[in-house]
Amino acid sequence: MTNHTITHSNTRSSTNSSLNSSSMRRILPLIMAIMLGVSVLAVAGHAQSPTLHGAAHDTRHATGFPCH
């Protein structure tokens, strides 16, 4: 744990570019997770194909998505 922390602070203090790539590496998966979540919601909550709309109808109304 201590080693891990030390390695980290060294990486952070080295250069600006490595700081940027390090924070990007940490934030990118979170952005991907958010985009995945938005995609799931777009299909389950907003997509208007008749079959999908019919199947999700009651839940969309109850969860306040704009429907019809």
């Binding site: 997770a33 958010i34 979540g37 938005v38 909550g45």
Partner: peptide, 16 residues
């Protein structure tokens, strides 16, 4: 669909 919608919300919430 209720589960799908809350998994979708969960992805955003957990990421934040």
């Amino acid at each position: 669909f209720s589960m799908a919608i809350y998994v979708g919300y969960g992805l955003i919430l957990a990421a934040l």
